[in-house]
Design a protein around this nucleic acid. Structure first.
Lengths: 333, 333
DNA sequence: AGTCGTTGCTGGAACGATCCAGCATGCGCA
DNA sequence: TGCGCATGCTGGATCGTTCCAGCAACGACT
């Protein structure tokens, strides 16, 4: 309600010191006696002083904000919502704001002057804004690797998607599956490419072919239902379906129901991305939990470390997953 | 890759004019001849000039960013993801960045210096950060009304939730429902309060009591399953359930399946918030489509108008819904 | 006693844009 | 010719902060 905000100079005047001393006292740097520092701090508190972030940014040549770019098709996936909030939380802990970048569209040129760094999650090779972001002139941390282009990001947080899919397939095999199939997007993202490669590797290792069908990156239940129906018709003895895209698992269940297959016994169903859809399905669906909130936190942490110099450019950190086993892979036992 | 960014002065020097003229030419204001303007613009383009937003903010006393606050429990609802992206898009059209506020936590004091305005979506009375946001010293636009506190927001975008629930109940009655129930959160939000009131009004008008049960604001399928099971046990002749929270509809379906009721004939099921869960359920569930992306756009538009003076403080705009009828309310016909 | 280093503080100069007063110039009009 | 006025442009001040050079004062050395 104060008509004009109170500045550092107001605080300095009220405390009877120079603005430099006030700045030093509040900022923690410089040489100030303990008594003076406390005095200034109490005056500042009393006056309700709030540092002007624009002025600070201007002087420091840093904005105190980072940008977050999500896949264009992210809007229906609660996975990314959780990830975003994880990143926001972590950024806040370091005093950074997180600005949400409009997906798909070029975000206007002056990005570099608006954010200190960028988080680019699940960069897809055919997303035209990704190269632009990588070239924005600020540190970029990707969530999963970027498979296109020549500019390397400054950092990355990666999951071992090969290992998680292998674990999932092992789990299905252990529960009696002999003829598993995988619904995965085309390999335009690191995640999808890794899943496809892992399926191939697992097939060779076990001598059991994993049938792979392509579905969109953010497939709808309708699309996975059609794909599953095709699988059921085409693959004799099909007894397990792994659905990669988040949110599309119900389609697999629908196709199973329509074909008269009981999920959990006749047909085991699992997902590569846990979330509301997998948890809330009937029956609940086994899925790899990528722990999106922690993933978001990890990405923000890497970027923050890069900005403070606590991490070197090129840093890559690993993020752990867990397997949430549920009724959909109970097996015949 | 330029080691230091090019400033307005660089452009002015290269174009052979003063910085004031350069500023006028690029900013559109002031008096500049058409020839000079074009010349300066081409020089700026050639040099790759990007205005420094911190300097601009400092001088203009505005940040070019708005904040978005979502309910603490929003993370699992794709509704809010869609809304957020709608708001981001609309904000970008007016050159505004959108910073995501950490839900639940007090977002640090200096909010007023970091954003020009705030979007507070579905403010809940028991969310301690809402009063703080309303008091941050910048215009606030709420999505739905805020039922607590004394500080009025500067603007709001509201839905006629009473009308949409009435339409939903009418639809159910028309499809043969005689004994409908409503699963709604406690009236801590405008939305939930309106739904409860509308249910009461509809009951009185039609002489048919709508049984209301309380579930959490962001109920999980497990919670709605339990609530629905109770309803089935307690309410003789129950033939329709309206589930208010987004994402929790599968729980209602699960309870129906467990009780041996066929959804769409024995038990009609509908939701108050359309989304991935309702669309992807088996069978697909009839729901009120709040058109979250457009809702987000509308909120951002109001705030933008308030900031430019195109709207007066106190402005309230209305947002339309539609009803998506699906298999879950087919009826016995 | 003179030099040195440290401590505590000050004043001014950035940072890069915008805004305002002001200054030529040229044109219309009495 | 002289006055008014619009046009096109300039220089400097300004926003609020941080950073740097520098200056007393003072104790500890040789």
């Amino acid at each position: 309600m104060t008509s004009r905000s109170v500045t550092l100079i107001d605080v300095a005047r009220a405390a009877g010191v120079s603005k430099s001393t006030a700045s030093n006292a509040l900022g923690g740097s410089g040489r100030v006696s303990e008594a003076t520092r406390e005095h200034i701090q109490s005056v500042a508190r009393e006056l309700g002083y709030r540092p002007n972030s624009a002025a600070r940014s201007l002087r420091r040549a840093s904005t105190g904000a980072i940008g977050l770019h999500l896949p264009r098709t992210a809007t229906r996936l609660d996975y990314y919502m959780n990830l975003a909030f994880g990143a926001v939380e972590r950024a806040r802990e370091d005093g950074l704001d997180l600005v949400l970048l409009a997906p798909g569209t070029a975000s206007g040129g002056g990005l570099a002057s608006r954010v200190d760094g960028l988080l680019v999650i699940d960069p897809e090779v055919d997303d035209p804004s990704v190269p632009e972001l990588l070239d924005a002139g600020v540190p970029v941390v990707t969530g999963e690797r970027y498979l296109g282009g020549d500019v390397a990001p400054s950092g990355a947080v990666v999951c071992d998607n090969a290992a998680s899919l292998a674990a999932l397939l092992d789990h299905l095999a252990e529960r009696g599956a002999r003829r598993p199939a995988l619904l995965a997007p085309d390999p335009g993202s690191d995640w999808a490419a890794a899943l496809r490669a892992a399926a191939g590797a697992w097939s060779r290792r076990k001598g059991v072919e994993v049938v792979v069908r392509t579905v969109p990156f953010a497939a709808t239940p309708t699309e996975t239902e059609a794909a599953t129906a095709e699988l059921i018709a085409d693959v004799p003895g099909l007894d397990a379906v792994v659905c990669a895209p988040d949110g599309a698992v119900p389609g697999v269940l629908a196709a199973a129901a329509r074909a008269g297959l009981r999920v959990g016994t006749d047909l085991l169903v699992a997902g590569c991305v846990d979330g509301a859809a997998a948890r809330g399905a009937i029956p609940p669906v086994t899925a790899v939990d990528l722990r999106p909130a922690e993933y978001g936190r990890a990405c923000a942490a890497v970027l923050s470390d890069l900005l403070t110099g606590a991490a070197e450019p090129g840093v890559v950190r690993h993020h752990d997953w867990t397997l949430n086993v549920r009724e959909s892979t109970r097996g015949r036992a």
